[in-house]
Amino acid sequence: MKIITDLSHYRKMEYPNLVLALGNFDGFHRGHQEIVRFVTDEARKIKGTAAVLTFKQHPRRVLAHGDAPTILTSMMHKLYLLHQASIELCFLLDFSAEFARTGADEFVRHVLMGSLGVKEVCLGFNAHFGNDRRGNAAFMKPYAAKGDFKFHEIKSVMVGSEVASSTLIRKVIQQGDLGKAQMLLGKPYSFFGEAVSGHGRGKMLGYPTANLDTHSETMPPEGIYAVWIRVIDCEMVESSAGWHDFRVNKTGKLLSGVMYYGKCPTFEKDGKPVPEVHILDYHDELKGALVEVTVGACIRGERTFTDQESLCEQIEKDVTIAKKWLDEHPIFRIS
């Protein structure tokens, strides 16, 4: 997948049949998947290029001034999922305060038509753009009627009586409803994180763990979880000015494990919650690796123990329960 971070280096004559989806794609849930599937199918029909335009920052992080949502999918995770979904071109732009002042009409004329020369544009049913939020399906249809480009409004994906949305998914994950999150996402919830050094307490207790510097912020309630873990070796490599290649060099084997997410109240009073994973029957070094953690089920909530011995006894029980659950629930549909 090619990534363009500076539109001034883009040459639209090289991509005459550009089929473009606009969106944040946070979580890459079933609604997003439907949009991307339409784009790739449409590009194939007209022998064009399947593309998305998205942002490095969630727009509300720039606009909300402290009242922004937590992120479901980090930038690298989002790029990985778009790559796996066969997107060929990703316009990855900075959403700055200056960019936020761009009006919907200016964005369509100067960016979509002027810089990109789009052939077709796809937008989700409730998506908005522009400083006045006028940019939506109704706003786009007159451009399509004049023949400036073809426009497609992608309908919502319903799960039961609810629309699959990033807002709803954040809510149910934070509430610990992993089953509902899985239905909305179309797969179990997962996040990316870099394995970093911790205090070494897990090793001292007989269960070595890798602390994770999470690249996303939406986490389930504090507690113990049965999880699947795999190392993802992917990178953005600059190929020329304003252009990068997104490469997936290697996807590791899926491994079973146990995740603790919490503040370590047995050892600390005012700690910050940190996820750490213990991989079952695994002895290689993980430090520095980018890993994807797929959250299966909650084993128990956070607890404080009076001594190290009782904590060790509980960890042994947790690992046994997690292993049994993972054996009984083989993972499916990991992209």
Rank of each mutant, 00 (worst) to 15 (best):
V36C: 10
L93Q: 13
L22N: 06
G124T: 09
G252Y: 11
S165N: 07
F151Q: 00
A104N: 07
A21F: 07
V295N: 07
R201D: 02
R170S: 10
V118P: 04
A97R: 15
F91P: 04
D270L: 09
G176H: 11
D281L: 00
S197P: 00
E235Q: 12
A226I: 03
G23Q: 03
A210T: 09
H32V: 09
T102Q: 13
T214D: 01
A21C: 05
C298P: 02
N24R: 05
S197H: 12
G252Q: 11
S240I: 01
L18V: 08
G117C: 01
Y282F: 14
K250N: 13
M259V: 02
W325F: 14
A127L: 14
G147F: 06
A51N: 02
H9D: 11
I299T: 10
I35G: 02
R44E: 15
T294A: 13
F129I: 08
G179V: 09
A164E: 11
F305L: 02
G103M: 08
T40C: 10
R44Q: 14
Y80K: 02
P221L: 04
E106N: 13
K146V: 01
S156Q: 14
F192Q: 07
D213P: 00
I229Y: 07
S239Y: 03
G66E: 13
R101V: 03
K150F: 06
A85L: 06
T40Q: 01
H77D: 15
V108P: 10
A68L: 06
G66L: 12
L20R: 04
P188Q: 11
G271P: 09
F191R: 02
V277Q: 02
M183P: 00
Y15S: 10
C264D: 13
E194T: 12
Y261D: 02
V172G: 10
H83V: 03
R247F: 09
S310T: 15
E153V: 10
L93A: 03
E222P: 01
E276R: 04
L93V: 07
H283T: 15
H9P: 01
L89M: 14
G66W: 06
I173V: 15
E88Q: 15
D148Y: 12
R333N: 15
G130T: 05
T5Y: 05
G160I: 06
E328V: 02
I299H: 09
T40L: 00
A226M: 05
T266E: 04
R170T: 12
H58K: 06
A210K: 06
I299L: 12
K187Y: 11
Q57K: 13
M158A: 08
V196R: 14
M1Y: 10
H278T: 00
K119C: 12
I169P: 08
K317H: 11
A51L: 01
Y10L: 01
L280H: 01
V291S: 09
A51R: 03
S335W: 05
I224G: 00
S115Q: 14
I279S: 00
K146I: 01
F149M: 08
E217I: 01
D177R: 12
G179W: 05
I229W: 05
E106C: 13
E153H: 07
W243A: 04
V172S: 07
V36T: 14
F125V: 09
K78N: 04
R61P: 00
D245V: 02
T209R: 03
V258N: 00
T306Q: 12
P59H: 12
S156A: 15
K45C: 10
R247V: 13
G271C: 04
G193N: 04
F95Y: 13
I279R: 00
S190P: 05
K323F: 05
L185D: 07
